[in-house]
């Protein structure tokens, strides 16, 4: 994959520095033009820790100048996410034992606009393809941001996360790896399947969602938020996956993409139980100071998904 197109002065600076590698010494980054510029800059910096770019230096990941910019962008993102959570209407913190029930309640009370309902009933082919391009930014590295969290967890949550992740990675069979199933699905509907292929089309909301996932995953301090995010994600997956599979069928987009969503109906019915109880529930018991973080992560998952949905409906001129 090559680095994405810059969207303003900050991302332009980042892309230029990454291409230079270790040959530059300093200089401070320009201010971002807007949230779009900021989001693509951070997405690019995070990607250095996944698969990297063919036109970026391999040394760039730990270059001190780059690390400082990444730290500042993550701090700004985290402040924004926590600001939204602080403003969210929420009751007092539950006891650790009540965390799974609290997650269920949080998910049940989510009233964000539903892309899955739209796909099932009324989306046209162009809208579905646009949604799949947006989703591909994460789905082609599905489960990777969460893999960072394994070493940060106590025994029970660690074993449970591995049980879930093993399934995400195809239970050892590369043909069943979820990101691979999604890549085949993209090809089956006539889209490109290469890793990172549609990043230049990603909405700022899509980038923000991906950046939050990467940040939660990579920072030990944010392990609770990462696992809360995972739980909310899995708990809002199997029913919508079924609706999306139905919508794809309605539009004649049969084949591997339907297979991908069908797989997620059954897989995520398991994963949501593991994530809410065996991962978040035991993490809350073993590390009670993570209760608030788990709920913050879960809220953030629902909130960011809702922002992506709102942005897409706005772009399509669909009233929700």
């Amino acid at each position: 994959m090559r680095m994405p197109k810059a969207r303003g002065p900050l991302s332009e600076w980042v892309v230029a520095r990454l291409a230079e590698g270790d040959t530059y010494l300093g200089g401070s980054a320009p201010l971002p033009a807007d949230q779009d510029d900021e989001a693509i800059a951070l997405w690019t910096l995070h990607e250095l820790s996944y698969r990297g770019f063919e036109d970026a230096s391999d040394d760039a990941e730990r270059n001190p100048v780059v690390v400082v910019v990444r730290h500042d962008l993550e701090s700004s993102l985290e402040r924004r996410l926590r600001g939204r959570w602080d403003h969210a209407d929420r009751p007092n913190l539950p006891a650790a034992a009540d965390v799974p029930a609290e997650l269920e309640e949080l998910v049940a009370s989510d009233d964000g606009p539903s892309l899955a309902d739209h796909v099932r009933r009324s989306a046209d082919v162009d809208q579905v393809l646009e949604l799949l391009r947006q989703r591909s930014v994460y789905q082609l590295k599905e489960a990777d941001p969460t893999a960072w969290v394994v070493p940060h967890l106590p025994t029970r949550a660690k074993a449970a996360l591995m049980e879930l992740q093993f399934d995400e990675y195809g239970n050892g069979n590369p043909n069943l790896l979820h990101a691979h199933l999604f890549a085949k699905g993209l090809e089956s509907v006539g889209l490109r399947s290469e890793y990172g292929g549609y990043v230049d089309d990603a909405l700022p909301e899509t980038l923000e969602l991906n950046n939050a996932l990467s940040m939660f995953g990579m920072q030990r301090r944010l392990r609770g938020a990462a696992m809360g995010h995972l739980a909310a994600f899995e708990m809002t997956s199997s029913l919508p996956a079924r609706k999306i599979a139905q919508g794809l069928g309605r539009l004649g987009l049969d084949g591997d993409m339907v297979g991908y969503y069908d797989e997620h109906v059954e897989a995520d019915a398991v994963h949501e139980q593991l994530a809410a109880r065996d991962i978040c529930g035991t993490l809350a018991e073993d590390e009670p100071d993570q209760v608030a973080e788990i709920l913050f992560g879960a809220f953030t998952c629902l909130d960011l998904e809702s922002r992506v949905a709102t942005a897409l409906f706005r772009a399509w001129g669909v009233e929700r």
């Binding site: 049940a108 199997s238 029913l239 079924r242 109906v265 059954e266 995520d268 019915a269 398991v270 949501e272």
Partner: peptide
């Protein structure tokens, strides 16, 4: 999708 759970219980 019996016998599998598909989340409908929710």
């Amino acid at each position: 999708r019996k016998p599998w759970c598909d989340g409908t219980h929710k």
